[in-house]
């Protein structure tokens, strides 16, 4: 009855967290802090890095690209994920097991392997273009890589599981009796969907959407391989500034902006879903 008061061992247990704490302080907090300070100290003290970043059309386009792609990816994954999660929640365990297997397989397959596949599939002479031409939808191969279309397709592929899984968790918990009640109250299927199922699933949709959006904002690999240098996203900008241009001040400033946006959205998610157990 009182066993939460009686750990059977004296002492707070904080000591056991110490190794992980030290590791994170040494290899996470210190490096990130050092990096962020460079944004206001290099090349000389001041806020000029931020002024440049937020004041020039070139860099604003990078921000624009980042938000555009992240927003589109979030929207598309939500549209696909909702019906799939819904089906997963109500179908037979066997079918759900197969679908989950496919989802987990794609999720755990090496990221570069998946991205490589899309690079080949989407190139001008690739399977997708040739199939579209064979069917007669297009005459000329479409430009699907080295631009934001390719990035979006590649990222939707990567993010889908992260939307489906939380949504599935929420929909599965909905009591079918609630929807039976809606039907008995005279609601048509469309009304029941719009007025009952969607509102009940909303926390899952919002939670998944925030997660996908945040992950997309800082994504590096897919944009770097499927997007061109002319359609840069924020993570690429950071890497380019640091690695190619050795401009640590600018790279750090961009990293700081990405960090702040990420943390704000994360805090929002925690606050929105703190009491709901999502």
């Amino acid at each position: 009855m009182l066993s939460f008061l009686m750990p059977a061992r004296r002492g707070s247990g904080l000591g056991m967290a110490l190794p992980a704490l030290v590791l994170l302080l040494a290899f996470f907090v210190v490096p990130v802090t050092l990096l962020l300070t460079r944004s206001v100290t290099e090349p000389q003290p001041g806020l000029q890095n931020y002024e440049t970043l937020l004041g020039s059309a070139t860099y604003l386009r990078v921000f624009g690209n980042t938000f555009l792609v992240s927003g589109t990816v979030t929207l598309v994954t939500a549209l696909i994920a909702f019906p799939v999660a819904w089906l997963l929640a109500i179908t037979t365990p066997r079918l759900a097991g197969i679908l989950f297997g496919i989802i987990l397989l794609s999720m755990w397959t090496n990221l570069l392997a998946r991205t490589y596949a899309w690079m080949v599939l989407l190139q001008q002479t690739g399977l997708i273009n040739r199939m579209l031409m064979a069917v007669g939808v297009i005459d000329q191969p479409l430009q699907l890589t080295n631009n934001l279309i390719g990035v979006t397709i590649g990222m939707v592929y990567i993010m889908l599981p992260f939307m489906i899984l939380p949504l599935y968790g929420v929909i599965r918990k909905i009591d079918p009796a609630i929807l039976q009640a809606a039907a008995l109250c005279g609601a048509s299927k469309g009304q029941a969907l719009r007025r009952v199922l969607l509102p009940l699933a909303a926390p899952g949709i919002a939670s998944g959407a925030l997660m996908v959006f945040v992950m997309s904002l800082g994504y590096f690999v897919t944009p770097a391989l499927l997007g061109g240098t002319s359609n840069m996203m924020l993570a690429e900008l950071i890497v380019q500034q640091v690695q190619s241009l050795v401009n640590w001040g600018m790279g750090a400033a961009a990293a700081f902006i990405l960090l702040v946006v990420t943390l704000i959205l994360y805090a929002l998610q925690l606050r929105l879903f703190a009491g709901r157990g999502v």
């Binding site: 009686m6 059977a8 004296r10």
Partner: peptide
């Protein structure tokens, strides 16, 4: 619990 030694 005091007899058991889980609490002092």
């Amino acid at each position: 619990y005091i007899v058991a030694g889980f609490q002092d």
